[in-house]
Design a protein around this nucleic acid. Structure first.
Lengths: 190, 190, 190, 190
DNA sequence: TTTTAACCGAGACGGTACGTCACGTCTTGTG
DNA sequence: CACAAGACGTGACGTACCGTCTCGGTTAAAA
């Protein structure tokens, strides 16, 4: 362990990740260069490579940071449909930055950083564990669902369809949210 | 239109696309070089760049070719569940090549060739128009579905979940097909 | 020997050589392409390669054509100095096109066509054989030179200095002609 | 001016120029590739293109380096003829590498680097300023030349004739040196 | 008159070099 | 030590040119 020498300037990390996120969104994974990240962050390549093993891992980390550290407690809207809509809208928001370009970065980065492969899980895992069970139990309490119902992972379905939607170049708007809830999620609870 | 000059050797196109597909599958989009494609195809870079504007578009085209030109008539298995399973298995097969590496190629290529964005549509469009309506009408005839039922685009849902599944690094196996049909597709028909 | 088939269109040769000369003068040997020659001549590459083995030989041929087929009888100006000046001016004229660009073409072409190496001889050979002896004998008749004088090849010297001059980027103007005659050629006759 | 950053490794320059000279001599300007220079120098194309704008300028620089930085003091041989012969032999030596291939490189490079056009001057400028005046003043002291004599630039003449000679494919040997001195240079001093 | 064979323009082909750019490593001086 | 700056080797990119080839079409001598 090193006990002497100049300590790392932890502010660099944020600057670099912010620059990376911005560039992924603007020009995509392939269109950006590590040099551009360094330039925008006012950092140097040496600093970047001292902290991350490569471009892919850096971008992976940057995307990871995009996810909210703590999904807020899903609010109780009073109905299953309302809860699902709120969940969908929240997911849209947290995927907001994930337009085509960012997803490409993700898809590529996933190759070099298998651990990032679980990011897609993470997008929904917390939500599922803390949201789905809550929403479902509320719905059962309201007797909107049968006690014995065992729906599939709704968040999986919602995330998958949203990803598919956005990959096709279409926007994650209210129309799609309503379609998603009324034609897919809600029927799956019955 | 050009009326004179040496005509293009159309056999080159197939050779080049085959080489591209092979390399995407073996080393991934980033790991392959245009020169390697040319070498494997017994072609020259000039020939490649005469036909495609760049690497991304070439790979996009190559992936496009993977799709079956004509989806076969979906067989009548005698039950809605059987039909859906057959459809799912067929889709898995036609997505077979789309492992992680290939999907990365796709994800990157999609950026430079918006038209490829509609590939995801194409994966299912024909199938939907000729399969979903057939399967649904058969199911209604068998009285497995209500006459008035209007399920969402089942193929959309199936494709989206499959893509999501494979992006997470998991295989498109029989277990997942059964989960997909029994927990998602079939419930959506009710 | 072929006795049947369409005979060559001899007009193509001139068109191609003219185009080649023009391009050498405009953009230099390296800056021009065989395709550009073909385009400017309204010809095709096949026609060019049917007649010349390569670019260097074509350019060599084109430069060769620049030389006058027959040097005119050098006029008798009444004095040795006048004769030498006239000779020098004539040489400048016949080297007129040989600016830097053209000389580069020549220098490169000479490598691939040793026969062209003798072009530099040709620039002066005829002149020497038919001019130097004439000028010298006239001068001896006028008693401007001793009967026994045996000057070096004046045209060699004139050509070499002119080439050197032009390679340095300086123009073959009247000032240089007078310098050449008064400071070099004339002294060599004494 | 840059005050920070890794300084250039000046040893690379020599390695690259040496490699370039070697290749020009071996295969000629056209026959060599920048990649070959890089390979032989143990350098990379990036390093080459960071220092020179292109192949022509690199070769120009390499040829420039061929010239001796400091022409040695011309020795006093005791006679004008001896001094001129010594000068001629020295010039032959310093032009030694300038065979056909190297001259082609020069001729081409001259186009892209006008400053190199003055290389031909440099071949002789120093020599003239420090040698011609010395040789001439010695000759005048020995009363081999008239005090009032004002010969042309002998080194110009010698260099021009030598260049012309070598361009014609003929060697710069002792025979030519003697011809040059006895038939041209010496007569010009009278 | 028909055949025949070489010519012509256009332009695709395999190759090879060009000059650019990015990656990830390294080597400076400064704090 | 960390850091900014930036040179380094490596290697892919996309462009341009070379010299060859294959087309459809033309032209004149031979049959």
């Amino acid at each position: 362990m090193h006990v002497v020498g100049r300590p790392r300037d932890e502010s660099r990390e944020k600057a670099i990740l912010d620059a990376a996120i911005g560039l992924v969104a603007e020009v995509g994974y392939d269109g950006m260069s590590v040099e551009a990240i360094a330039g925008r962050a006012g950092a140097s390549k040496a600093t970047i490579y001292r902290r991350w093993p490569g471009k892919a891992q850096l971008v992976a980390d940057a995307i990871r940071r995009l996810q909210p550290e703590a999904a807020p407690e899903p609010e109780d809207t009073g109905s299953l449909r309302g809860d699902l809509l709120a969940l969908t809208r929240f997911m849209f928001e947290s995927m907001g930055g994930l337009d085509g370009g960012l997803l490409c970065g993700l898809a590529v980065a996933v190759r070099s950083d298998p651990e990032l492969g679980r990011l897609l899980d993470t997008i929904k895992r917390d939500a599922r564990d803390r949201a789905q069970s809550l929403i479902v139990s509320r719905a059962k309490a309201r007797e909107e669902m049968e006690r014995t119902a065992d729906p599939p992972d709704l968040i999986d379905v919602a995330a998958a369809l949203s990803l598919f939607h956005v990959l096709g170049g279409k926007p994650l708007d209210e129309d799609f949210a309503i379609y998603l809830v009324d034609k897919v999620l809600l029927p799956l609870t019955r």
